[in-house]
Structure formats: structure tokens, C-alpha cells
Design a protein around this nucleic acid. Sequence first.
DNA 1: GTTTAATTCAAACGTTTGTTTAATTTTGTC
DNA 2: GACAAAATTAAACAAACGTTTGAATTAAAC
Lengths: 208, 208
Amino acid sequence: MELSEKKLQILETAERLFATKGFAGTSVRDLAHEAGVNLAMISYYFGSKEKLMQTLFEYRSTAVQLEKVLNDESMTPLEKVDQMIENYVEKVFNQPCFHKIMVREQMRSRDSGIAEMLKDFKKKGYDFMQQLITEGQKKGDFRQDLDAQMLILTMTGTTNQLISTLDFYKYVNDEIQNLSNEEFKATMKKRIIDHLKLLFKAILTHEA
Amino acid sequence: MELSEKKLQILETAERLFATKGFAGTSVRDLAHEAGVNLAMISYYFGSKEKLMQTLFEYRSTAVQLEKVLNDESMTPLEKVDQMIENYVEKVFNQPCFHKIMVREQMRSRDSGIAEMLKDFKKKGYDFMQQLITEGQKKGDFRQDLDAQMLILTMTGTTNQLISTLDFYKYVNDEIQNLSNEEFKATMKKRIIDHLKLLFKAILTHEA
DNA sequence: GTTTAATTCAAACGTTTGTTTAATTTTGTC
DNA sequence: GACAAAATTAAACAAACGTTTGAATTAAAC
């Protein structure tokens, strides 16, 4: 799929509107107006509103390359966990709108193609975590009674929750400090990465 | 606000549909049909679709009574944290649809009355956590470098993520065990409570 | 049993929805 | 500059939307 400049312009506007107002809550007229294009261009370029959504998912869904990290002999299991956390948070903070859309879509639980894709994502993340834990346990670094599914849930859930409510935290923290939007985002990114690393180190290595 | 049986019937159907399909994605015709009432009854009872949503929030929003736990002298700080975790997970699992709606609404970041309410909720939860941490630190039970906001984020985020994707975990785990819906939900509730308790104990008491 | 109020209903209201059309303008090619 | 293809537009389309109407039915009050 070749993406002309105008197509990208529409896609990125759609992403922003779908994230805040939802798919059904965004009209193609709003979308066209915000993107600065004629109403008919959306059907002309993408076929339909639904297909625009599919295109957005194809455009944004990048295969997470977890295997590289897993097979890296130079890293300890805990370092691999840290790497996984950094990668995930980085991904969410680089594409906040898209991840908000994913949060919305995963509640639909329909049998669309998107639902299938989300299932795969989750399954891979969970399998990766399970392998990492097993490796760490074999080496004696990690404790024994660990729940891989719950751990993945904590990483994704905490990050998704933060990106969904970032405005709130900007409002709360601005009473003290006064940062630009970009500075604030960078601060929060660092904070959640540090927090998750500390959290995972504690739960993985701390004896019960 | 008195709630007749029929009103409740509409409210609970709306809750279920808004949770899965979103507010804008649910038509009042769908809603009326699923609730088994005439289309006009929604306007007749609630005034409008928007006011129905407001009524739903008033109906479901129960003030969390955190002060009782905080001032209980017989509990240690860690026991209070455990209590907070149990209370929150219980609340979400008792009203899964309503919490899915809250997940959706908190991404809107509009200045509606609902947004204001969500802000208050979050602020209270964060203040509560901060007090609990301070208390635990004074007693020497908790470590010093703790981020209360991130900790609350982890509790709510992990739980919200689970309730949003419960269907997925049912699908994954049914390959092994075969439980009824109710059994499955009870199992997952126990799992996440145990996980969060372990997680918080580790991060709160484990020395860096 | 009559009267009054509350409920239920099918039908219609005016908008807004996503999409298509057909004419026009722009762009690229020779 | 002439031609063909692609891009852009205003206008119109049918369908779905939230809401209202006014008549019909049920319930409550006396």
C-alpha cells in the first residue's frame, strides 16, 4: 500500500479523532474538515470509513521483534525484562493515539480482523514473558511462583492507563511544576519506565 | 431519583451496550430492542440519550469510603494496601460494564460533568495512596523512593486491562481448563488480587 | 363506574450519517 | 497545446439517527 502525503494526512487525523472520540463518535465530515480535505476524498482514497480503520491498523501495526532480545546471550534475564519494558513504553508513547484506539477496540470483543490481530499480539507478549521467566528461574535469578499473564497485564495495563489519562496527570502535576507538553511527556515516560523496572525487579527477584 | 423496574432494565441494558459498543456506537433503537421496550420510552423516562448516560453514572457512582481504612488503628500499612486492592478489584469485577465505560470516557478528556467526576476519583485515589505510603514509611515498613501516582496507576491499570480483555483470557485458558463463566471470573479475580498483593508487598518492602 | 394520570405504542419529525454521482480542475505525457 | 488520467469539488442520495407527537392502553384514585 503506497501512502501519498494526503492519504497520510487523513490517516493521522483519523487516528487522533478515533482515539479521543471513538470510531462511531467521529463522523467522516468532522474528519474531512479537520484534515482539510473534501468529504468525498475519504471514500475516494480508502473506499469507506471502515476500510480507513483497517488501513490505519495495517499502517501502525509493526511486528514486535521479541526474538532478538530473547536470544541475546549477553543479557541477563532481568536485563531482558528491562529491555522489554523500555520497548513497550517507548512504543506506546510514540503512538499514543493508536494505542488509545487499541484500548477501545479490545473492549469490543467482536470477531473482526482487528480482534484477531489483537489476540495474536497478546498471545505473543504472554509467550515471550513466560519464556523469559522460565529462563530466569533456571538461572536461579527469579523466584518460582510467578504469574506470567498477570505480569504482562501489569506492564501493558499500567502503560495504557497512563497514556489514556495523561491529560489528568498533566493537570495534577502542573500545580507544582510548569512544563511544556513535550517536556511533560518525556518526564512521565521516564517515570513509568523507572517504576515498571523497579516493580518487576522487586517481584521477580524478591523472595516471598 | 426513584428507579422503577423498567427504568433499571433500560439502564442495565444501556450499560452493557455502551461498554462493548461505546456510547456513540449504540443507537437508541438497538438499546430499546435489546431492553424489550418501545423506542419512545427512553426519551420518556430519561429525557435523552445523553441524560440516560448521566443517570447511569449517578446510579453507579458510589462514593469510595477510603477514610475508614485509613484511620483503622488495628491494621498495618501493608494490610491497608491489601484491603485497598481487594476493594478496588471487587468493585471492578462487580461492575465490569460500568468500568469499561469509565475506561472509554477517561480517554475523551472533555470538560463534561463526567470528566470532572473522574478527575475527583483519581485525585482521591492518589491522595489515599500517598497517605498510606507516608504512614508506612514513618513506621519503617516501606522503602523510601516510592511513586504513589505510579502505584495507583498500576493497580487501576492492571485491573482495568484485565476486565477489558477478560474474553481473551477466557479463550486462552479454556484450552486447558474448562470452566463456566462464573467460575472463570472468580478464578481470575483471585489471581489478580493475589498478584497485586504480591506485587505491592514486593515493591513497598523490598530494599533497592 | 367514572375520572385522571401514567404508560405504551406506531408513526412521523427534522438532522445527520456514510456514500455516490457527475461535473470540474489539476496533473502528467507525448 | 492536445489528450488522458488522476484529483477535487458541490450536490444529492438513501439510510439511520435521536427525538417528538398524538392516539391508544393501562393503572390509580375517588
